[in-house]
Design a protein around this nucleic acid. Sequence first.
DNA 1: TCCTTTGTTGGACAGTCTGTCCAGGAACTG
DNA 2: CAGTTCCTGGACAGACTGTCCAACAAAGGA
Lengths: 184, 184
Amino acid sequence: MDRRVARTRSALHAALIELMLTRGYDGTTVEEICRVAKVGRSTFYTHYADKDALKRDGLASIGRSLRQSRHETVRDDALGFVLPMLRHAREHVDHYRALAGGHGGSMALASIREILAGIVRQEMRSSRRRTVSADVAVNYLVGAFMAVLTWWLDRGAIESPEQMADAFRDLSAGYAAMHRPTRN
Amino acid sequence: MDRRVARTRSALHAALIELMLTRGYDGTTVEEICRVAKVGRSTFYTHYADKDALKRDGLASIGRSLRQSRHETVRDDALGFVLPMLRHAREHVDHYRALAGGHGGSMALASIREILAGIVRQEMRSSRRRTVSADVAVNYLVGAFMAVLTWWLDRGAIESPEQMADAFRDLSAGYAAMHRPTRN
DNA sequence: TCCTTTGTTGGACAGTCTGTCCAGGAACTG
DNA sequence: CAGTTCCTGGACAGACTGTCCAACAAAGGA
């Protein structure tokens, strides 16, 4: 690939990441991206159809990187994805924070989640059957993981990936069990 | 409150919901909202500073409604929020699907989640300590719940709230345990 | 009912961002 | 060095935003 192309594209990616961390995705304009990347606006459009195409390309790139780094550390149990993913996230903190971060724009879910968080917090000061499809289980687990990941990253990824993995495994092993000792 | 005000505002809310379900939040313009709501564009701006203000107002309204309907069915255990919330969601499917739905715009998370979902699915075909802060636990649970909720709504909320609540409780009681019987 | 208050409306406005196009100049490749 | 490919600024129409105003309509109390 032509050096100029490589330079331009990586500059654009870096600029998008940087701006997403401050203004959020929606608040970022193509003009700003080009200004930060020191690239002509015309040039932007010769590479990407629009802002979204740039983002999608970045995500695809992260996806490849993740899949590959995962391929190296194969573990064949459920939850095996946890540690590799956490490590990968820490290696690419900025990318992850920009793309998955709770900050700006990404999640309109934020406010509903906050309401819920209040409720759950309150209820945690006190507390079986089997009708589950695999689909629900997957969504449950992914949702839980993404939430924990986001939480971790937004606070600066202070804990080690290993600590977080352990925490996540504990939680997955039984949420209710974790909190019975507290009181009831 | 003046009848005209009430009429205008609820028309705007309804229009936003309707448009979010089709074009997504970001793809919806103030002009469209006004067209659908049969309201002058000038009028829009006498009520809300911008599109976001309208959305926030809608969310606040849902929040109030949820808190209230919750106040009626008090259960003092962890996970007590599950059933009331699911019922509330079903009563206001459109609102929830528009605001929390996976469809358009809301979650840039979508693609990362898909990558992860693939991985988890693959690993589910096969596999204790305690270092968890309460914060992580809350985020874990909320994330899991929101994910299940979104999944449920996006598929049309076919299952009953009770079924979903049971499923969620089972999962929370121990994800790993749920899937050991499958093979290993 | 009448009158005052309050809402609604279309139109006009400047400003921002988008996506497209082009022609001149720069950088790469062989 | 030559030919190809890329970068660039500038110009363009089009869409959307947020603000303002003057005319009109509806509400609700006296």
